[in-house]
């Protein structure tokens, strides 16, 4: 088992003929991900990376049975791409695109909640179930199958932690990058619920960062309800207030969103918080 993506995933790549879309489609296929279709409006009937291209997601669903989508289209077209996927009945939509206006995402998220589709991201590396499906841009070879669920707001920091786990011989059930934007489709709480219900997952690693209160809400959720051990790391302890640290959502504003508050909230519900990324793997190993 795993969460969200697996060998039954039938992936459609939105923006497959773009430079990024094409490169990562090849990488995903090489990893063994079942990529069944691509979509680029105006290029229906062509082929890309050995995959048939359609003009619309609806056609990709009807012709190829796509059930999951990954989006590589530019920021100004990405909200439309997400809505198109949801409207075509795609249940898991992974949006890699960075730079979508926040107000657009508020509308998109409200619509997705109405129709019951799940969005991962935007501005995220995607999601991988090692050995089964890689839906995103993470380097596949650093992962291996195993019992640890990973959920993170970051990209390379997640790879760093996954790499440290794998080097210790500890595999991952699924690693989810939920994205670095202020408004995201899947939160820590959503991912924790899924991992708690997943029989393969025995432990969870949560990688947060400054900005917002998603980590605090994860701590509230964990209080009393969660059985599986959670190890956390929060990036940005040295970040100054009022400055955006790369990610659109990584900003301490109005005194909220500091690393200290998040660490305190997590420690209060018995989550072990690592002092640096490599220590996460040590803590996880000690709990195996």
């Amino acid at each position: 088992m795993s969460i969200l993506v697996n060998k039954n995933t039938r992936l459609v790549v939105q923006g497959i003929t773009g430079r990024e879309g094409l490169f990562h489609t090849e990488q995903m296929i090489e990893y063994g991900t079942p990529v069944v279709a691509g979509v680029t409006p105006g290029k229906g009937g062509e082929w890309a990376a050995g995959v048939p291209v359609f003009d619309t997601v609806k056609e990709a669903v009807e012709a190829r049975g796509a059930n999951t989508s990954v989006i590589f289209v530019p920021a100004r077209f990405a909200p439309d791409a997400i809505l198109e996927a949801a409207d075509a009945g795609i249940q898991v939509i992974v949006c890699i695109t960075e730079g979508i206006p926040t107000l657009d995402m508020i509308g998109v998220k409200a619509y997705l909640d109405q129709v019951g589709a799940r969005l991962i991201g935007p501005n995220c590396p995607g999601i991988i179930t090692p050995g089964e499906a890689k839906v995103g841009i993470m380097p596949g070879h650093i992962h291996r199958p195993g019992p640890v669920g990973v959920v993170s707001r970051s990209g390379t920091l997640t790879y760093e932690v996954v790499y440290a786990l794998t080097q210790r011989g500890i595999g991952q059930s699924t690693a989810v990058g939920i994205g670095g934007d202020p408004i995201i489709g899947t939160t820590f709480v959503d991912a924790l619920k899924l991992f708690e219900e997943d029989p393969q997952t025995e432990q969870i690693v949560l990688i947060g960062e400054i900005g917002g209160t998603d980590e605090e809400r994860a701590a509230d959720y964990l209080a009393g309800r969660m059985v599986k051990p959670v190890t956390a790391f929060i990036a940005g302890q040295t970040a100054p207030p009022g400055k955006r640290m790369g990610h659109a959502g990584a900003i301490i504003s109005g005194g909220t969103g500091t690393a200290e508050e998040k660490i305190k909230a997590l420690q209060a519900v018995n989550v072990k918080v690592a002092r640096h990324p490599e220590e996460i793997a040590e803590i996880v190993a000690s709990q195996m």
């Binding site: 990209g155 920091l157 960062e209 400054i210 940005g236 040295t238 640290m245 790369g246 990610h247 640096h276």
Partner: peptide, 17 residues
């Protein structure tokens, strides 16, 4: 000098540690 925002923050933090 780091690739990735989260890793860049983690790198800052560890110098302080």
């Amino acid at each position: 000098m780091v690739n990735g925002a989260g890793l860049a923050m983690a790198t800052m933090d560890i110098t302080k540690l």
